[in-house]
Computed example of a mutant assay.
Amino acid sequence: MARFGDGLIFAAAVAAIIWWLWRRFRHWLHEPPSSRLRRLARDGAPDAEDEGAALLLEHGYEALSGKHRIPLGVSVDDGPYEATRLYFDYVAAKEERYYLVKLERPRQPMDWTASGIRERLLAYALLFPECEGIIVADLRGRTIRTVKFRIEEGKE
C-alpha cells in the first residue's frame, strides 16, 4: 500500500513538470520572429582575414557569422527521405536589420532576371521570412546587391 508521502512527492513532481512545460510554451509563444535568425548569427564570427566579411564591412554591413548549412530532407512520391543541404555564406546586419549573404561564384554566375533570381534565392527568403533581404556579394567586382521578394496582388 502506498504511503501518503509517496503520492505527495509524485504530485509535486507532476506539478513541477507541468509548470516547466507551460513556461517553455509561453517562451516559445512570445519569442520574437527574428530569434531563429539571431541564433544563427551567434554561431561564430568569420575570420578577420575573410574577404567576404571585409567586402560587407566596406559597404556598411557587419558579418555576424559565416558558412551556414541548412539540412533538408526530400521525398519523391512518398519514397524515403534523402538528405540534402542548402548553403549560404553569412548572416549580416545593418541598422538592426538582418540579411542572408550569398557569394557569387565564378562557376555559377547569377542570372539577374526575375526568374533567375527566383530560382536561386527564393528558398532562402521562404526559410527566413524575418530577413530584410538577401545580399549577393561579388568578390571580384567588389560589389553587393540586395534582393527582396514580395507577393504581388493581381490575377494569375
Rank of each mutant, 00 (worst) to 15 (best):
Ile18Gln: 02
Pro32Glu: 12
Pro32Ser: 10
Arg23Phe: 05
Trp28Gly: 02
Trp20Phe: 12
Ala13Cys: 11
His30Ala: 09
Ala12Asn: 01
Pro32Phe: 04
Leu29Ser: 09
Trp19Met: 04
Pro32Cys: 03
Ile17Pro: 01
Ala11Cys: 09
Arg36Pro: 12
Ile9His: 05
Leu37Ala: 06
Ala11Gln: 02
Leu8Ala: 14
Ile17Thr: 04
Phe10Cys: 04
Leu37Ser: 10
Arg38Met: 15
Arg23Ala: 08
Arg38His: 14
Pro33Phe: 04
Ile17Trp: 02
Glu31Asn: 05
Ala16Asp: 03
Ser34Ile: 07
Pro33Lys: 05
Ala12Asp: 02
Trp20Asn: 08
Leu37Tyr: 04
Leu37Asp: 03
Leu21Pro: 00
Arg38Lys: 15
Leu29Trp: 15
Ala13Pro: 00
Pro33Leu: 02
Phe25Val: 10
Arg23Gly: 03
Ile9Asp: 11
Leu8His: 05
Arg36Asp: 14
Trp19His: 09
Ser34Phe: 09
Ala12Leu: 15
Ala16His: 00
Leu8Met: 12
Trp22Asn: 07
Trp20Glu: 07
Trp22Arg: 12
Pro33Gly: 05
Glu31Met: 13
Pro32Gly: 06
His27Glu: 14
Trp19Arg: 07
Phe10Glu: 13
Pro32Lys: 11
Trp20Ile: 06
Arg36Phe: 14
Ile9Ser: 11
Pro33His: 03
Arg23His: 10
Trp28Gln: 11
Ile17Phe: 03
Ser34Leu: 05
Arg24Lys: 13
Ile17His: 00
Val14Arg: 00
Leu37Val: 15
Trp20Met: 06
Pro32Leu: 06
Leu37His: 04
Ala12Tyr: 02
Arg38Leu: 14
Ala16Phe: 08
Ala12Pro: 00
Trp28Val: 07
Leu21Ile: 05
Phe10Ala: 14
Ala11Met: 06
Ile18Leu: 12
Ala11Trp: 04
Trp22Lys: 08
Leu37Met: 15
Leu37Glu: 05
Trp28Met: 04
Leu8Asp: 05
Ile18Glu: 04
Leu29Gly: 00
Leu29His: 13
Trp22Cys: 05
Leu29Arg: 15
Arg23Asp: 07
Pro33Asn: 03
Ser35Ala: 15
Ile17Leu: 13
Leu21Gln: 11
Arg24Phe: 03
Arg24His: 03
Ala15Asp: 00
Val14Leu: 12
Ala15His: 01
Val14Ala: 09
Glu31Trp: 01
Leu29Ile: 02
Ser35His: 13
Pro33Tyr: 02
Phe25Glu: 10
His30Ser: 10
Leu29Val: 08
Arg38Tyr: 04
Trp20Cys: 05
Phe10His: 08
Phe10Ser: 11
Arg24Ile: 08
Trp28Thr: 07
His30Pro: 00
Ala13Gln: 06
Ala11Gly: 09
Trp20Leu: 09
Phe10Leu: 12
His27Lys: 13
Leu29Gln: 15
His27Ile: 14
Trp28Lys: 08
Leu21Gly: 04
Trp28Ile: 06
Trp19Gln: 03
His30Lys: 10
Ile18Pro: 00
Ile9Phe: 04
Ala13Tyr: 04
Trp22Ile: 10
